[in-house]
Design a protein around this nucleic acid. Structure first.
Lengths: 281, 281
DNA sequence: GCTATTGTGGAATAATTTATTCAATATAAA
DNA sequence: TTTATATTGAATAAATTATTCCACAATAGC
């Protein structure tokens, strides 16, 4: 499924004919099996060379490579017999709204495991676990996710730092030991404040984990470890909500992975005890 | 799998080099993906034309056709294998953690619509829509949800107020007009700070919406409108994550309902325009 | 034993498919 | 506006695949 998800994730950074091609492929992925690059170009109404360039832009060696990947994806999907429901229905009653949102969320959550390999997730968890200190950064709706992650890291006895002011985030970064980690959360991966922070951190040779939408971005390129979220193409409002929840879900997953470590469980127990004392008073 | 079985079935009616080729393919079907006809010929030690003839003898149109068929067979087989493995995954694997969390989230999201009637949700949305000002409050992990909701209300041009300091929240409440609304978010519904705020707000005859876990609680009892989240009974860590996401989901739902109003859509457009200007700079 | 017949396999080559180059055009930035 | 950058497709180069054709071997018939 990865190849199709990859295309879906890049939809909005494509040019006109690339977009036409992408749409066609997504709609007719099952036909790809029998298309040569020329046939595909004719079917879409663009040139054969554009088809090849599209493949290379996506990171494939050439057309046969993409074709094979898509064929595999189609076979995998049909083998698993997972029918994707259409998210694009009219918004109406509350129930419909909820249905749509929940469908989008469910799909997005599922996809998280497709686009983020278990290996990468484990590496990320390991980095967080070993770090002296973890600086979190996120702007807009991602700020909420960063703030939440700070709480959770603190619960585990890990020094998570977060401040909503980008200037202060930089100052915080200045104080970090080399064995610290940055977790940068952004939808587009193009937020200027976050990028500034990233550049600074790289100079200091700090480890950087990036969490962005699934597409090439400066933020992702500059990170040691790339994590991604993926949403389906729907209404923009809906998309924002889904992306944010997906970011949060991924962070929660990392948190749960950390919780599996016995040392961290102990810290959690401590934490709960302290909270208990607080409530008594 | 069909293509590989087909080859196996023909094994004894093949000539020498055909047999060599067939054996190689059966042993290395997973490598076929990356072989051209020439490479395959070299690997087996026969000529490229023999490879092509072999394909045609088996009934395929040519080499790419056979290659595709074998690749599909390999993918199908490995997918099925993965499915079987899923049933017996080791405890603690990332996939299993994710599975568990996602299951809990999905159930919890679904349940939201069972325990919160459409009517109540609409009333809540209406209250928020008509309010001069909306004061949000939440402690611990609910604070994140409150902060997020503040952002979203502001996007819609609604004056959402939030401060993490309970004392300041009280001071904010003191400034509110009678036509203001409080949205109080808490898991247990027993947080002392929130309850204090609620009592104060009632004296001022402000409207109060409560969002707590589904159980009787002081907070819920004292509110004009009761909203609930519901989680399944599992591991406590998991439960916390699920509750928080459920709270957020419910808030997002209210936000989406507000988005349906044309006036609010206009506000959103304004908001996006302003954000666009910001990015330019 | 010696052709004729049939079939196999590979070199050479034709046909097709894919990849690259380059110039024209469109788009964005200054 | 001009300049710079990116996009696109026609032409062409490169690679891959398919066919032809001939050498050679095995077998059968004379």
């Amino acid at each position: 499924m990865l190849s199709l998800l990859k295309i879906q994730g890049m939809l909005d950074q494509l040019s006109v004919s690339e977009r036409k091609l992408a749409d066609f492929i997504l709609d007719n992925s099952h036909l790809m099996r029998d298309y040569s690059s020329q046939q595909l170009a004719d079917a879409v109404g663009i040139s054969q060379s554009s088809v090849v360039k599209f493949c290379q832009k996506l990171g494939y060696k050439g057309y046969p490579d993409l074709k094979l990947a898509i064929t595999e994806a189609v076979v995998t999907a049909s083998t698993l017999q997972r029918e994707q429901q259409d998210v694009n229905t009219a918004l109406g009653s509350v129930a419909q709204l909820a249905e749509q949102l929940q469908l989008g969320l469910t799909q997005s959550f599922r996809n998280l495991l497709s686009i983020n390999s278990e290996k990468t997730l484990k590496q990320a968890a390991r980095l967080l676990d070993k770090a002296d200190c973890i600086l979190l950064a996120g702007c807009g709706h991602s700020a909420v996710v960063a703030a939440d992650m700070q709480c959770r890291l603190l619960e585990l006895g890990k020094l998570g730092l977060y401040h909503s002011d980008p200037a202060l985030s930089l100052q915080l970064a200045r104080t970090l030991t080399p064995n610290s980690v940055l977790l940068l959360i952004s939808d587009s991966g193009q937020n200027a404040d976050i990028l500034r922070l990233e550049v600074f951190a790289r100079q200091r040779k700090l480890k950087i984990i990036s969490l962005t939408r699934y597409q090439t971005s400066a933020q992702s390129a500059g990170a040691d470890l790339q994590l991604f979220t993926l949403g389906s193409e729907t209404d923009e409002q809906l998309q924002q909500l889904i992306t944010q929840q997906a970011q949060q879900h991924l962070c929660h997953l990392l948190y749960l992975m950390l919780c599996q470590q016995p040392a961290n469980r102990q810290q959690l127990a401590d934490h709960n005890q302290v909270m208990g004392l607080l409530e008594k008073h």
